[in-house]
Design a protein around this nucleic acid. Structure first.
Length: 843
DNA sequence: GAGCACTGC
């Protein structure tokens, strides 16, 4: 008998007096399968049905199957399920398992939910957006038109302090689970952020457990990503304790056979080193020891810049408990946490809900269509960040989905018929006007699923891809389409797909979704063309959905780009749009690499022409596409500006000794991301080569020839505080520089101690200051970070080097995008150069 | 010498 049955009588009693119930019970208690049946058997459903919301498709299907078996009925009869594109249910279905999202879409067409007697929100602690919003909407429905509607929120580790008042009046039922005790060990001394690595700490923890005989079964190690997993596997191989033990990596990017290998059972011990997949999606049997790095890569939407981020963060206490619980599924276990008890107390109790982290545009449009006028007054369980809300509203207005008063337009309502982000919905509607519905629907279908192409497929796959898929008109989206067509032609054959670096499983899911979108397009009276459109027409559709993600390449020597709204990024190396000066990127993502550096990557890019922008946005061409100018007229100027920048950066060499002015320019360059220290290693050489080339090409410019000056340059920069000595002292490439600095010089730089500043948007920065305030820089900083003021700015000090701190308090980046700085100051630099080089003919 | 967690309509 399952532990959950112990609460049957209590549930029965509570049902008589309450329509809102919170039910907490640990994993494995059987609540997902038993509670719906209890409701049915207790007659709590009347003639209606109970909808059980699940966060994952696989679980939805499996739970429905098990309950159907337990009740001896056919699946799709009394017990059924529904997930996207798959509905196994009928008019008799009383227990209806659904993925979150299905019900919300039903509410769009049937707001009163006829026939639904109860809604069960399972695994609610995961706090996905659809769960949150469906609960709020159901609650409203219950308060207004459906007082009979029964709402039950179920979870293993629920934040009841938040939910109890939200659902008040509400009953709370708790049931014990069937898990084994898990002993928890913390570190005695915290890991040193610079010296200690999580992978070495994990290997040590394993050795320590093995010495004490505490690894009687299999081991599960949690790491934030593929890079860290690889390092952990290597570190474990160096230990004696892991000799003869299978060491298996597990993360989403691995091909299915390798994922299966990690889950499979063996006749000897294994250590699985995994990402968060093992926390929720996959269950690995026989785990007795968990080693937890306490880290995860967390996707967020940065509403200040309007880009997605994927950075390493500390997991919450609740998530750590969830991870530890994996050691006690079959027998008592041990969990070793790679942080101290004190650090643990300082961690967040729960992870931030999805609504606080993601771009809320799609959900906002849905709510608008549901008739919500005032989003601030709508009963959110937790509202999105005000800035994110603001940005979503302006995006929706920009896409034409909302009018100036914030009400949905007819176009916005049509967009909602497509179950995708409004950007893709807008693309699809544009496709209807341009005879490009088929390819654009395919692009949208590919974009919805798992990544189609393997990221680092290897050299052979790269070459094969190029041979077979070709240049595809300068758009990565067309490459994706060709790759998918190739996979389909070969019936998603695993071997053939792997050779091209195509995820066969991901590819297989695209076809049905494509059909689905085409059917919706038909129902919306979009003409489905019989002959394929020009590539340019597809690109214009992309622009309709992503016009605020237009980027201009800064030069042809690097992949750096300037984006609309003063943002910076780098085009993905594998992009085939790398010949274009102007492009639109469907994805912008800031990524924290394993080594701690951060970069903003532009992926899924499409080459575009300026005249298309003029065609699409005739009335507000120049404001909308701030970085885009008429290429023919401005190309020469653009080239010159790049030269100016180089010269300005090197102006100290043009005219030594360095002035305060040039030091400030350099500081600006560091702040603007022109020269991160990492880039410095590479770029110094490049600059010098470029200036030398320039000197050769333009003899009348009187440029000095550079040779062995980069060391000197660096020393000067360090002395001026333009880069922090501390930051570069450990970099091997720059090691030689260190020996050339006097102790006094070092001391002078180091006295500028960084100051920790907590920002309004939840992140914190460490700022080093010089004792001169620059109003234009402080203005940029305030705009970018969204703070009213940095304390030191008010004291007349100028921020010099900014360390963005990841939530785990490690400095991960030393610069911040302040690209507007340069645009603002080109005229001044130009003037200076004009004075310096009067012989040259300046335009 | 290099860049990435997991879901869902």
């Amino acid at each position: 008998m399952l532990p959950i049955h112990a609460i049957r009588n209590e549930l029965s009693a509570v049902l008589k007096r309450s329509r809102r119930i919170i039910l907490t019970a640990p994993t494995g208690s059987g609540k997902s399968t038993q509670v719906p049946q209890m409701l049915l058997d207790l007659g709590a459903l009347g003639n209606g049905k109970c909808v059980v919301l699940q966060p994952r498709r696989l679980a939805t299907r499996l739970l429905a199957k098990r309950v159907a078996e337990e009740r001896n009925t056919a699946l799709g009869g009394k017990v059924g399920y529904q997930i996207r594109l798959e509905s196994v249910c009928g008019p008799d279905t009383r227990i209806h398992f659904e993925t979150e999202g299905i019900l919300l879409r039903q509410m769009l067409s049937q707001p009163d939910l006829p026939g639904v007697a109860a809604i069960l929100f399972d695994e609610f602690h995961e706090r996905h957006v659809y769960g949150d919003v469906t609960l709020a909407q159901a609650l409203q429905l219950q308060k207004t038109k459906r007082p009979d509607l029964l709402l039950i929120v179920m979870s293993a580790t629920l934040d009841t302090r938040l939910l109890l008042p939200y659902l008040d009046p509400c009953e709370h039922i708790h049931s014990e689970g069937r898990t084994f005790p898990v002993e928890i060990e913390h570190l005695v001394k915290p890991l040193h952020p610079d010296r200690d690595t999580p992978w070495e700490a994990a290997a040590e923890a394993y050795e320590h457990a093995a010495r004490k005989g505490k690894n009687p079964g299999d081991t599960l190690i949690f790491m934030p990503g593929a890079y860290e997993i690889q390092r952990t596997v290597e570190a474990l191989r160096q230990t004696d304790a892991a000799k003869g033990t299978l060491i298996l990596p597990l993360h989403g990017e691995l091909p299915p056979p390798e994922q299966d290998a990690a889950v499979a059972r063996y006749d000897r011990k294994k250590i699985v080193v995994a990402t968060n997949v093992a926390e929720t999606s996959l269950t690995i049997e026989g785990i007795r020891l968990v080693i937890d790095s306490g880290l995860a890569r967390v996707a967020r939407f940065d509403p200040w810049r309007g880009i997605n981020t994927l950075l390493i963060e500390n997991i919450s206490r609740a998530a750590a408990d969830q991870r530890a619980g994996r050691a006690g599924r079959t027998a008592p276990g041990l969990a070793i946490r790679l942080w101290t008890e004190q650090e643990h107390a300082g961690r967040a109790a729960h992870d931030l809900p999805e609504i606080k982290r993601i771009d809320p545009a799609e959900i906002i449009l849905t709510l608008k269509a549901l008739g919500v006028r005032d989003l601030a007054a709508w009963p959110w369980l937790e509202p999105p960040e005000p800035r994110a809300l603001e940005r979503a509203l302006s995006l929706l207005r920009d896409l034409g989905a909302l009018d100036t008063a914030g009400a949905p337009t007819p176009l916005g309502r049509r967009m909602l018929s497509f179950p995708v982000h409004p950007r893709y919905a807008r693309m699809l509607l544009a496709a209807g006007e341009r005879g490009a519905v088929r390819p654009v629907a395919l692009i949208a279908a590919i974009a919805q699923g798992r990544p189609l192409l393997v990221r680092r497929a290897g050299k052979a796959a790269d070459e094969q891809r190029r041979d077979l898929l070709g240049d595809a008109g300068g758009s990565d989206l067309l490459v994706l389409m060709r790759a998918w067509n190739y996979a389909r032609q070969h019936r998603f054959d695993l071997d053939r797909c792997r050779r091209l670096g195509i995820h066969a499983a991901a590819a297989r899911q695209v076809g049905p979704l494509w059909d689905h979108f085409l059917r919706i397009a038909e129902s919306q009276n979009l003409p489905i063309e019989s002959s394929p459109p020009e590539d340019a027409e597809i690109a214009k559709c992309v622009l309709a959905g992503f016009s605020d993600q237009v980027a201009r390449r800064l030069d042809c020597g690097s992949l750096r780009c300037e984006l609309v709204h003063g943002r910076r990024g780098e085009l993905a190396r594998e992009s085939i749009a790398d010949e274009a000066a102007l492009l639109v990127a469907n994805e912008i993502r800031e990524i924290g690499r394993g080594d701690g550096e951060i970069s903003v990557l532009l992926t899924q890019a499409t080459a575009i022409r300026p005249e298309w922008l003029r065609e699409l946005y005739p009335e507000d061409f120049s404001e909308r596409i701030a970085v885009v100018w008429d290429a023919a007229a401005k190309r020469a100027v653009a080239r010159l500006e790049i030269v100016f920048r180089d010269l300005a950066l090197d102006s100290r060499l043009v005219e030594p000794p360095p002035t305060e002015e040039s030091a400030r320019l350099l500081a600006g360059a560091v702040l603007s991301g022109e020269c991160t220290l990492k880039a410095w290693d590479r770029a110094v050489d490049q600059w010098i080569a470029r200036v030398n080339l320039l000197a050769k090409a333009c003899p009348d410019w009187e440029l000095p020839a550079y040779g062995e000056t980069e060391r000197e340059l660096l020393i000067q920069q360090i002395c001026h505080g333009a880069v922090s000595y501390k930051e570069i002292k450990d970099r091997p490439v720059l090691h030689a520089v260190k020996s050339l600095l006097s102790p006094a010089q070092i001391a002078q730089v180091e006295k500028h101690a960084p100051e920790r500043v907590l920002l309004a948007n939840g992140r914190s920065v460490k700022v080093q200051y010089l004792d001169t305030a620059e109003p234009y820089i402080s203005a940029r900083i305030q705009e970018l970070f969204g703070v009213a003021s940095l304390p030191a700015l008010a004291q007349g000090r100028m921020p010099l080097v900014i360390h963005i701190l990841a939530p785990n308090q490690r400095p991960v980046q030393i610069t911040k995008d302040l690209s507007g700085f340069w645009r603002d100051h080109y005229p001044r630099i130009r003037q200076e150069l004009r004075r310096k080089y009067p012989k040259h003919e300046w335009k």
